[in-house]
C-alpha cells in the first residue's frame, strides 16, 4: 500500500538540530527511528505528518554502555542489540527475556526500545521489565535535558509526558543487586503476538519481590501492594489466592478482540505464580533458562 501523505524528510546530525526541527513543526513532525510502528501508521493514514525526522544519523544516540551508576540504552538501541548484549543478559535478565518476546527477529533488528516506550501502548512488552528495574528516561527538549522515572513516563494509552518538541535520548537502568526474575507473556498462540497480558517478577537475594504488568490496565503498572504481599514470604496456595484477589483490585484489564478481561485477569494470577516460581528457582541456580516460555 503506498503512503499517500507527502512530507519532508530530515536526517539531522545532532540532538540539537532535532529539537530545532521538532520546535518548528511541533505536532506536524514525527520522529523516525526503527519505523516499525510509524511506517504502518503512514500507510494506513493514521498519521499524516508534514515532517519526518530520522534520528538514526545521530551517532551519540546509539549503543548500550555503562554510564556512571547506570547502564545507558541509547535511543537507537534496537531489541536485537539488547538481546545480543552480554551485559543485558547477565545483569538485566528480565529485560532480556522480555526483549525476546517482542515481535520477531526481522522487526527486532530495526525496532528500538525507546521507540517502543514512546508508542505507550498498554501491551508494551518492555514496560514491566523497565518498571521492575526502575528505569529512568532521559528527555531532551528546547530547555535542555530532563530525567524522569519510567514509572511516570506513560500517562495513558498512547500518551506520554513528552512535549511536542521533546525526544527521548536514552533509557537509564540503575544497577540492580543480585536478583533473578521472569517475564511471562500471554499471546494467542506460541508465535509472535502482542501481549494480551504481561507480568514481570523480580526477586532479590533477600526475598523482596517486585512485580509489574502490561496489557492489564490502561498503562503498564507496578504494584506496591502485590509486592508487599509477596515479599519475603513462601508463596503457597493461600498467599497466591490472596494475590489473585488483590490483582482483581489492582488491575483493570479490558475485553477486546484479543482477549476478555476475565481471561486476562485469570491468566494474570497464573502468570504471576509461575513467574514467581521461575524467579525463585532461578535464584537457586535452577532452571528454567531465561527465554523459555513459562506458560
Amino acid at each position: 500500500m503506498p503512503i499517500a501523505t507527502e512530507f519532508e524528510y530530515f536526517a539531522p546530525a545532532s540532538v540539537r538540530e532535532t529539537v530545532g526541527l521538532l520546535s518548528k513543526f511541533k505536532d506536524k513532525a514525527r520522529l523516525l527511528a526503527g519505523g516499525t510502528d510509524l511506517i504502518v501508521q503512514l500507510k494506513e493514514d493514521v498519521s499524516k505528518p508534514q515532517a519526518l525526522v530520522d534520528i538514526k544519523r545521530i551517532a551519540p544516540l546509539g549503543g548500550i554502555k555503562v554510564q556512571g551508576k547506570f547502564l545507558r540504552l541509547g535511543a537507537l538501541a534496537t531489541f536485537t542489540e539488547l538481546i545480543e548484549s552480554t551485559v543485558i543478559k547477565s545483569k538485566y535478565p528480565i529485560l532480556w527475556e522480555a526483549a525476546r518476546t517482542v515481535a520477531s527477529p526481522g522487526v527486532r533488528n530495526r525496532a528500538t526500545v525507546a521507540g517502543n516506550i514512546c508508542s505507550a501502548v498498554p501491551s508494551l512488552d518492555s514496560a514491566p521489565a523497565l518498571l521492575v528495574y526502575e528505569a529512568v528516561v532521559v528527555i531532551e527538549g528546547p530547555k535542555g535535558s530532563r530525567q524522569i522515572p519510567f514509572a511516570s513516563f506513560i500517562t495513558g494509552p498512547r500518551r506520554t509526558v513528552l512535549a511536542k518538541d521533546e525526544l527521548v535520548t536514552a533509557i537509564l537502568l540503575p544497577q540492580p543487586g543480585k536478583h533473578c526474575g521472569a517475564y511471562v507473556k500471554l499471546g494467542r498462540y506460541a508465535g509472535e503476538d502482542l501481549a494480551q497480558a504481561g507480568v514481570a517478577v523480580l526477586a532479590d537475594a533477600k526475598g523482596a519481590i517486585r512485580a509489574a504488568f502490561c496489557a492489564l490496565a490502561p498503562a503498564p503498572l507496578r504494584s506496591a501492594k502485590i509486592e508487599a504481599l509477596l515479599s519475603c514470604k513462601k508463596c503457597d496456595a493461600a498467599v497466591m489466592a490472596q494475590a489473585c484477589a488483590l490483582l482483581e483490585r489492582e488491575l483493570a484489564p479490558i475485553s477486546d478482540i484479543r482477549s476478555s478481561k476475565e481471561y486476562r485477569l485469570h491468566m494474570a494470577g497464573v502468570m504471576l505464580e509461575r513467574g514467581l516460581k521461575a524467579a525463585c528457582s532461578r535464584l537457586k541456580g535452577e532452571g528454567p533458562d531465561y527465554g523459555k516460555h513459562l506458560i
Binding site: 519505523g35 511506517i39 533488528n109 530495526r110
Partner: peptide, 26 residues
C-alpha cells in the same frame, strides 16, 4: 504491508529487516 509476514525481508548491513517498514530515503 505491516511487518507481520516477513515475505519482504531483505538484509541491510547484514541484518534481515522488513523492507515494507522502511522508507527508501533511510
Amino acid at each position: 504491508d505491516r511487518g507481520d509476514c516477513g515475505t519482504c525481508t531483505v538484509m541491510i548491513n547484514g541484518r534481515a529487516v522488513r523492507s515494507c517498514l522502511i522508507l527508501a530515503v533511510e
